[in-house]
Lab assay of single mutants.
Amino acid sequence: EQLARLKREFNENRYLTERRRQQLSSELGLNEAQIKIWFQNERA
C-alpha cells in the first residue's frame, strides 16, 4: 500500500514540497528522509 501510494504521488508530481512530504510521512508511517530518498531514486 505504501509503495502504491508513493507511485501515485510520483505520477502526479515528480517533486514534493516540504509540506507534502510531511503529510505523506504522517499518512504512511514513514519518516521524511525515507520519502525524500524514494523520490530521488525514482527520478534517477
Rank of each mutant, 00 (worst) to 15 (best):
I37E: 14
N11H: 11
Q34V: 15
S25N: 01
F39C: 00
I35M: 03
Q23H: 08
Q34S: 10
L30Q: 00
A4L: 09
Q22C: 03
R21A: 15
E32M: 04
G29M: 06
E12S: 08
R19H: 14
L16F: 03
R5H: 09
E42H: 06
Y15P: 03
R20C: 06
Q23R: 10
E12N: 11
N41L: 11
Q34E: 14
A33L: 14
R20S: 05
E9H: 03
I35N: 01
N41C: 15
A4N: 07
S25E: 08
Q2L: 13
L6F: 02
R5Q: 08
A4I: 08
A33T: 14
W38V: 02
F10D: 05
W38I: 04
W38K: 03
R8A: 14
A33V: 12
S26R: 15
W38D: 01
A33Q: 14
L30N: 05
E12K: 15
Y15N: 08
K36Q: 15
L24E: 01
E32Y: 02
L30W: 09
Y15G: 03
Y15Q: 06
L28W: 02
R14T: 08
Q2P: 03
R14G: 09
L6D: 02
F10G: 01
T17H: 05
R5L: 07
Q40H: 10
Q40P: 02
S25H: 04
N31S: 15
N11W: 09
E1Y: 09
I37T: 11
R19Y: 11
L28Q: 02
L24I: 09
R8F: 10
F39V: 02
S26T: 12
W38P: 01
E1M: 08
Q23K: 10
L30H: 01
K36N: 14
R20W: 06
I35H: 00
L16W: 04
T17K: 05
W38C: 00
L30R: 00
N11D: 13
A4F: 04
L30V: 08
S26P: 01
Q23L: 12
Q34L: 14
N11A: 15
A44G: 05
N13H: 09
R21E: 07
Y15L: 07
L3P: 00
L3W: 08
K7N: 04
Q34D: 14
K36Y: 13
Q40V: 07
E18F: 10
N31R: 08
S25A: 13
Q40W: 07
R19M: 11
A33N: 14
R43G: 07
N31E: 12
L24H: 00
A33H: 14
L16A: 03
L28K: 01
W38H: 01
L28A: 03
R14I: 09
I35F: 02
L24T: 00
Q40M: 00
L28R: 00
L28I: 11
L3H: 07
S25G: 09
A44C: 14
G29I: 01
R14H: 10
L24Q: 01
N11Y: 12
L16V: 06
L6S: 03
I37W: 14
N11T: 07
E27S: 05
R5W: 08
N31D: 15
L30Y: 03
G29R: 04
R19Q: 15
T17Y: 03
E18P: 14
L28E: 01
E32A: 07
Q22E: 08
N41E: 09
S25I: 11
A4C: 14
E27D: 08
N31H: 12
L30I: 12
R8W: 11
R19D: 12
R20T: 08
R43V: 10
E12H: 11
E42L: 08
L16H: 02
L6Y: 01
R19F: 12
L16K: 00
A33G: 08
N41Q: 12
K7Q: 12
R21V: 15
R19N: 14
Y15E: 11
F10R: 01
Q23W: 11
E18I: 11
R8S: 07
L6W: 01
R21I: 15
L6T: 06
E1I: 10
K7T: 08
L30T: 02
W38N: 00
R19V: 13
I35V: 07
I35E: 00
R8E: 12
E42I: 06
R8H: 11
L16S: 02
E42Y: 08
E1C: 12
R8Y: 10
R14F: 05
E27H: 02
E27I: 08
E42Q: 10
E9V: 05
F39P: 01
N31C: 15
F10M: 02
A4G: 04
Q34A: 14
E1F: 09
E18D: 15
L28D: 00
E9Y: 06
R20F: 07
G29Y: 01
Q23G: 05
T17F: 03
R43P: 02
L6Q: 02
K7D: 04
L30K: 02
L3R: 04
E9G: 01
A4Q: 11
E12L: 11
I35A: 03
E32Q: 08
E18Q: 14
A33P: 03
K36L: 13
L16E: 07
Y15A: 04
T17P: 04
I37C: 10
R21K: 12
Q2F: 07
E9I: 05
N41F: 07
R43H: 11
Q23S: 06
K7M: 10
R14Y: 04
R43K: 07
I35L: 07
R43D: 07
R14E: 06
R5K: 07
K7E: 06
F39E: 04
N13V: 00
E9S: 03
R8Q: 12
A4P: 03
E1T: 07
L16D: 13
E1K: 05
E12R: 12
E32V: 12
L6N: 01
N11L: 14
Q23I: 09
E42G: 02
K36E: 15
E32N: 03
E27F: 05
E42K: 03
L28V: 06
L24D: 03
E27W: 06
E9K: 05
A44S: 10
T17Q: 03
N11S: 13
E32S: 05
E27M: 09
E42N: 04
G29H: 05
Q34N: 05
A44P: 02
N13P: 01
Q40A: 11
N31F: 06
S25R: 04
Q40I: 10
F10P: 04
A44M: 13
G29S: 05
F10N: 03
R43N: 14
T17R: 03
S25Q: 03
K7P: 02
G29N: 06
L16R: 03
Q34H: 10
N31V: 05
N41V: 07
E18M: 07
Y15H: 11
L24P: 00
I37M: 11
F39T: 00
G29W: 04
R19L: 12
T17A: 05
A4R: 10
L28T: 12
Q40S: 11
I35R: 00
R5F: 07
F10C: 00
A4M: 09
E18K: 15
A4S: 05
E18V: 14
A4E: 15
T17V: 02
R21W: 13
R20N: 03
E42V: 04
N41I: 09
S26Y: 12
I35Q: 00
R14Q: 14
L6E: 04
Q22F: 08
R8V: 09
K36T: 15
R20Q: 12
Q34T: 14
R14P: 15
R14M: 11
K7I: 09
W38T: 02
Q40C: 00
N13S: 06
E9L: 06
Q2Y: 06
L28M: 06
A44K: 11
S26I: 14
R43S: 10
F10K: 02
R43E: 10
I37D: 12
W38G: 01
N11K: 13
E9W: 02
S26V: 15
N11Q: 14
F39I: 00
S25F: 05
T17N: 09
Q23F: 06
N41Y: 09
E18R: 14
L24S: 00
G29D: 05
R19E: 15
A33I: 13
F39H: 02
R20P: 01
E1D: 10
R8M: 12
A33M: 14
K36W: 13
R21Q: 13
S25M: 08
I37Y: 08
L28S: 03
N41T: 09
Q22T: 07
Q22I: 11
L30D: 04
E27G: 02
L6I: 03
A33C: 15
S25K: 05
G29A: 04
E42D: 04
A4V: 05
R8L: 12
K36P: 01
E27N: 02
E42P: 00
R19S: 14
R43T: 11
E12C: 14
L3N: 05
E1L: 08
K36H: 15
S25D: 02
S25L: 14
R5T: 07
R5N: 06
Q22Y: 06
Q34K: 08
A44H: 11
L24A: 01
Q40T: 07
L16M: 08
W38S: 02
Q2I: 15
E27C: 09
S25Y: 03
K7F: 06
F39K: 00
T17S: 14
W38R: 00
Q23D: 08
R43W: 14
L3D: 06
I37N: 09
L16T: 03
F10A: 03
T17M: 03
N13K: 07
S26H: 13
L24G: 00
A44V: 09
